[in-house]
Each structure stands twice: as structure tokens, then as C-alpha cells.
């Protein structure tokens, strides 16, 4: 019953976005298949990108209000079964891709993440204040850091494992995962009051949002980047290029958020971001597009 309701809600959402549900499913499937194929062909660490993407989707599913609601409505046994099943459903398309392309380590990581993330939320305390280095420029990173604290720790642990087993790709993946988690901080639109209060122009507002995102993401990722550089100095150029591309993605995600504001990021923006994964140069087209859309969307809130 719960999943039937979720299915209905999802279909309704697609309709609100202007898509027939069947078309949206086919579009998502085709995009995923194309992106996976292209990425797997080009990058050896691509499977881990999808594990990170899955983790990002999980950050949304694991939000505390939703968890509290489920806990209130269902018995603890049913609650855990629902969490496991919804995580597994979310993981299914990725799992199929990993099996088809025989990416067994990524498949195992995904399976483990699916189970762990279904259980972790049960135990997280959300009352105690977790200090963050972002208090001077709230809110995305201070809220996001606290919500995804365990995922950020996991990224640092992954880097440790990567260095221990001398796997450069795993180190790169840990940096990527961290950036993906940071991008996740920008997936939900804030209440209009929090845009309205700014006395900035739309361009200054967007510039300030992008600047804060890049500065804070740099702060979180700097230790990982520096450690990896220290262990693999010969790959310095590669690491620098990689970090540069993730920065450009970060800019695109921040702008995409406001391009859809006050709604959530739309399917079309997700699609543009998705096809940019195997071809990052496309962002040079999409960033100005998102910027223009964001400027138009914010006009009614900022002068």
C-alpha cells in the first residue's frame, strides 16, 4: 500500500512537470543507460560515481522528518522493511548496470550502502548541536554538513582505505563522493522568505551563493585533495583537472537549483546535468542557460 501510494505520488509529480509518467520512465532509463555506457567507457572510477549518486539520492530519502513520519505510522519491523525495500528499489537500476558491466566491487559497495543507510538513520540523534566551520555563512553547508555528517566521514574513510590499498582511483572517488554530497545540499529549494530577505540583486545573490558553495566545498575537500596529491604527486595534473571539473559541476548544481526556484530542480535540469557527466564540456552551455533561468526565477523575490 505504501509503495503503491509512492508510485502514485511519483506519477503525479511527473505529470506536474509536464511529462506523461511512461515517457519520464523511458527517458530516465535511456539517459541512465547512455550515461552509464559513456562513463564506463571513459573513466575507470565511473562505477563509484554512481554509488555516490545513489548516496546523494539517499540523503533525500533519509531526511529526519520523513523518517519520523514513517516511524510514527509503521511498527519498527515494518519501518525497517520499508526503508530496506525503498533503498533497494532506488539501487536496482544501478545494480543492474553493475551486473551488466560486471563491476563487482561497485555492486558490493552499493549493496552494503543500501543496507547501512537503511539502518543508520534509526540511530542518528538530531537534537545535539554538531559544530561546523560554516557558521559565518549559513545555511546550506551548516545544515548539509550536519545532515550528511556520516557520509562525509565515510568519504574520508574511503580515502584512508584507498591510500592503504594503494588504489588511486578509490582516492579520486572519495573526493568525488564528497563533492556529490556537497551538491546534495543544493537539491531542495528553501522557503521564499530566505531568498526574499536578501538585499542583493539577482546576479549578486547567485554569485554569492556560488562563491559560498565553492569556498565551503574547498574547505571540506582540501584535506582529501592535499593527501592524494602528497601520495600521488605524479598525478597532480589529473587531480587538478578533476577538481576543476567538480567545481564547474558544483556551480551548475547551485544555478540549476535557482533555475527551478521555487520548485525543486526539474527533470530537464537533471537531464542536462546527467548528460554532462560523460561530457563535462556541455556545462559551458548549460551554466549560462541555468544562470539566465535562475535570474528570471529570482526576479520576483529580489530587486
Amino acid at each position: 500500500m505504501y509503495f503503491q501510494l509512492q508510485f502514485k505520488l511519483l506519477n503525479r509529480r511527473f505529470k506536474e512537470l509536464g511529462f506523461e509518467p511512461w515517457f519520464a520512465y523511458v527517458l530516465i532509463l535511456l539517459t541512465l543507460m547512455t550515461v552509464v555506457h559513456q562513463s564506463f567507457e571513459r573513466y575507470s572510477f565511473a562505477p563509484y560515481v554512481f554509488v555516490a549518486l545513489y548516496m546523494l539520492l539517499q540523503v533525500n530519502l533519509g531526511n529526519q522528518k520523513r523518517i519520523d513520519f514513517l516511524k510514527t505510522v509503521f511498527t519498527s519491523r515494518k519501518f525497517r522493511r520499508i526503508r530496506l525495500l525503498e533503498n533497494a528499489l532506488m539501487a536496482l537500476p544501478f545494480m543492474i548496470e553493475f551486473i551488466v558491466y560486471q563491476k563487482w566491487i561497485a555492486l558490493a559497495s552499493l549493496g552494503l550502502t543500501t543496507i547501512l543507510l537503511a539502518l543508520i538513520n534509526v540511530k542518528i540523534s538530531h537534537q545535539k548541536t554538531l559544530p561546523t566551520p560554516f557558521s559565518k555563512r549559513p545555511f546550506e553547508f551548516s545544515v548539509g554538513f550536519r545532515s550528511a555528517f556520516l557520509l562525509l566521514i565515510a568519504c574520508y574513510i574511503l580515502m584512508g582505505i584507498g591510500l592503504y590499498v594503494d588504489n588511486f582511483n578509490l582516492g579520486m572517488f572519495s573526493i568525488l563522493a564528497l563533492f556529490v554530497v556537497c551538491m546534495g545540499f543544493y537539491t531542495q529549494p528553501e522557503e521564499e522568505f530566505y531568498v526574499w530577505i536578501h538585499h542583493h540583486s539577482t546576479s549578486t545573490f547567485l554569485f554569492s551563493k556560488v562563491k559560498t558553495a565553492l569556498m565551503n566545498a574547498s574547505l571540506l575537500s582540501a584535506p582529501l585533495v592535499l593527501i592524494l596529491l602528497g601520495f600521488y604527486p605524479m598525478n597532480g595534473g589529473y587531480i587538478a583537472l578533476f577538481v576543476l571539473i567538480t567545481f564547474v559541476f558544483m556551480i551548475a548544481v547551485v544555478l540549476a537549483k535557482y533555475a527551478a526556484y521555487p520548485n525543486e530542480i526539474q527533470l530537464i535540469q537533471v537531464f542536462f546535468l546527467g548528460i554532462s557527466i560523460p561530457a563535462p564540456f556541455l556545462l559551458l552551455l548549460f551554466i549560462p542557460l541555468f544562470y539566465n533561468q535562475a535570474t528570471n526565477r529570482l526576479k520576483s523575490y529580489l530587486k
Binding site: 531526511n63 529526519q64 522528518k65 538530531h126 548541536t129 554538531l130 557558521s135 559565518k136 555563512r137 549559513p138 545555511f139 551548516s142 545544515v143 550536519r146 545532515s147 528553501e190 522557503e191 522568505f193 530566505y194
Partner: peptide, 14 residues
């Protein structure tokens, strides 16, 4: 409205 994980001080700062 207040974000779920923002402190009073951070709200004022914001």
C-alpha cells in the same frame, strides 16, 4: 520557518 539543523546564532547570522 526554520531549517532543521540551523542554530539560533546561525539564523541571526544568516
Amino acid at each position: 520557518f526554520f531549517f532543521s539543523k540551523i542554530t539560533g546564532r546561525e539564523y541571526l547570522q544568516l
